[in-house]
Design a protein around this nucleic acid. Structure first.
Length: 270
DNA sequence: AGTTTCACCTACAGGC
DNA sequence: TGCCTGTA
DNA sequence: GTGAAAC
């Protein structure tokens, strides 16, 4: 499940190899991969354009072209991989860009939830997403403001991409454990002290996860066989029944906002 | 506005 | 082994 | 992981 650190890892792995590449063609085997374009319309927008830069906004991969941008969202199982060959034996390849010089940027996606689209400008995307948690704009004061005004539960709030862009299920559980906050706690009720800890947990955990090239539980990978190494640093996610690293109480799994949620019932009391 | 449920798909783990 | 259910 | 539809 690619979240901010995984998407950032993909972007960094592709950055040195795709920038400067010229797009020759695009093939789509699963039409729904293209969000709101027919394959021919999409090709008309991107054809013969050069990829000038690759970056990330929230969980979106953005390929800047001479004119306009390709947006890629990996959702649950998507992978964007650069290769000189198209793995013909792989049944999960949904689409690919043919690049000049017999090279490919292919989109592999087991569950078919991932999406690719095109936008002339990024304004619309930017306005639907909340602040980047690793930008200077994301201050403890901003987080305090976000939480102060709402009775919404903290976990679904942090997962809402229009509130903060980039957190997903894994890192949400991790940061809440670090700040010792119950995932069902209303935003407005959280103490000033815990908000400060939560802010620094968000920044440090996302930063460290990027350094470890993300978390691989099952599906996440990039550039062939490479996988994330942050799995070994997880404190609560996927550790049901194991001792809390802080107090040794057994980690419990519950459901919050329809998502599997891992907490220490002692550290994260309501 | 906020919350809940469901749909979108495939693979795999666990129980029997 | 194989089916069914639940979960990512 | 996300968006639409329904309370």
């Amino acid at each position: 499940m690619p979240e901010l650190p995984e998407v950032e890892t993909v972007v960094r792995s592709l950055q040195p190899i795709v920038t400067g590449c010229r797009i020759q063609d695009f093939t789509c085997l699963w039409p729904r991969t293209l969000d709101d374009f027919s394959t021919t319309d999409f090709i008309n927008h991107i054809k013969a354009q050069t990829i000038r830069a690759i970056h990330r906004r929230g969980k979106y991969i953005l390929l800047d072209l001479d004119s306009g941008h390709i947006l890629v969202h990996l959702r649950m199982t998507g992978k964007l991989i650069f290769s000189a060959v198209l793995p013909s034996q792989n049944p999960h390849i949904r689409a690919w860009f043919t690049l000049e010089g017999e090279q490919y940027l292919y989109f592999e996606d087991t569950r078919k939830f991932g999406r690719i689209t095109f936008r002339s400008s990024l304004g619309e995307l930017d306005s639907k997403l909340g602040p980047e948690p690793l930008s200077d704009k994301f201050t403890p004061e901003l987080l305090a403001d976000i939480l102060a005004g709402t009775s919404r539960q903290i976990k679904p709030l942090l997962l809402d991409q229009s509130v903060i862009a980039g957190l997903g299920n894994i890192y949400c559980d991790e940061v809440l454990w670090h700040a010792a906050i119950n995932p069902r706690a209303p935003g407005a009720g959280i103490s000033v002290r815990k908000v400060a800890v939560l802010h620094s947990a968000i920044v440090t955990i996302l930063t460290e996860a990027i350094e470890f090239q993300g978390t691989t539980i099952r599906d996440f990978g990039f550039q062939g066989e490479r996988t994330g190494n942050y799995s070994s640093r997880l404190q609560v996610f996927g550790r049901t029944g194991q001792p809390c690293p802080r107090c040794n109480t057994a980690i419990v799994k519950l459901t919050v906002a329809q998502r599997g949620t891992h907490i220490c019932p002692h550290c994260q009391k309501m």
